[in-house]
Simulated scan of single mutants.
Amino acid sequence: MSEQFHTQKHAIRTSFEKAAHSYDAAAVLQREIVDRMFERLELIRLSPPRVLDAGSGTGYAVPKLRSRFTDAQIIELDLAHSMLSVSREKQLGTGVKKLLKRLSSTTPAQVCSDIEQLPFADNSLDMIWSSLTLQWCNTPDAAFAEFQRVLKPGGLLMFATLGPDTLKELRSAFAGIDGYEHVNQFIDMHDLGDALITQGFATPVMDMEYLTLTYQDAKSVMQDLKGIGAHNTMQGRRTGMFGKAAWQQVQTQYEVLRRDGKLPCTYEVIYGHAWKNDRPRPQGVRPDGSQIIEFRPRNS
């Protein structure tokens, strides 16, 4: 991906810090994707003692993970501290109930950190669950390398992220407005699969589907994106004010796509899971399994 379109981590953190209290009201798609991930998880047999929710947000997946893995320690990790705070508030409740839950050992641990720099020891986790977080990485390699490092041999990585056709209607509406990129770009499913293999994951399974939300107008689309903190965070984004005439042009171009009285907003959702190989890689073999061949001069 071009460096011009790289996301800026500090901008991502700031955006999600601000969106923490509006997130749940706007995160209809995000909850649906988590539910669909759990349907896929039903097909996998495992009982992990230690599970990391990497990019846990306001904690929608946490009670589901706790219900699915009743004896596991659940760890929430997010880049935005306020997201973790909202999750903790929901889990603890209020009054006497809050006090009792605070004393309970079932309350998940929380860590504010970056998935590209995980603060965990090597081989210390049994499963990593990550829903709609990897798309905020410029390349998946650093995150996959960290997931590989902290997972125990035989550990499972399960994730969902967004593909290149995500927000294609919004991208079309902004086309030709100015010389700036107004919509984040996303990584192709095949590149994600290749990155998993390169980082040493075994038997990756990938699939994709399109989910389309509908809106009354372009402003509602933008409001929902703002509500979940999904601002444009690329280095090539426009930083100044967006004029009234330009915004009118965006709305006009979006209107061309109206169907059955509604404006579509498409998300390309990519699902994947892979295992950390439980056998050490032989010397002279790359993470993707290819042989390293060295040519050395013959001794005279």
Rank of each mutant, 00 (worst) to 15 (best):
A20V: 00
T198Q: 14
K9W: 01
V269I: 11
G93L: 05
E89W: 06
M222W: 08
K98Q: 11
I44Q: 09
R102S: 15
H231W: 06
D207M: 05
R13F: 00
A145W: 02
L167G: 04
P282K: 03
E39A: 14
P119V: 09
I115L: 13
N299V: 07
F38W: 04
F242V: 15
R238C: 03
K152D: 01
S131M: 03
T161H: 12
G227Q: 01
G243N: 09
R36D: 11
Y210E: 13
P264V: 07
L213R: 01
V51G: 06
Y215E: 04
M241A: 01
G176T: 13
T266V: 09
G200C: 02
V256H: 14
G179H: 10
M189Y: 12
E181Q: 13
R36E: 08
Q249K: 10
F201W: 08
H81I: 05
S113D: 11
S104R: 09
F201M: 06
L257C: 14
L29S: 03
I74D: 10
A61D: 00
E89M: 10
P282E: 11
Q216N: 08
T203A: 14
K90P: 12
E169H: 03
V205A: 13
S300P: 15
T70V: 05
F174D: 14
Q216L: 13
R88P: 02
G289L: 02
S220P: 01
L263G: 04
T212L: 06
K98W: 04
K101H: 13
R279W: 05
A72N: 07
S104N: 12
I44M: 14
G229M: 05
S220I: 06
M241F: 05
S56T: 15
T107E: 06
N232D: 07
L92R: 00
R296M: 15
S113V: 06
P140T: 00
V221I: 13
T107S: 10
A80W: 01
W136G: 06
N123T: 11
P49C: 09
I177Y: 01
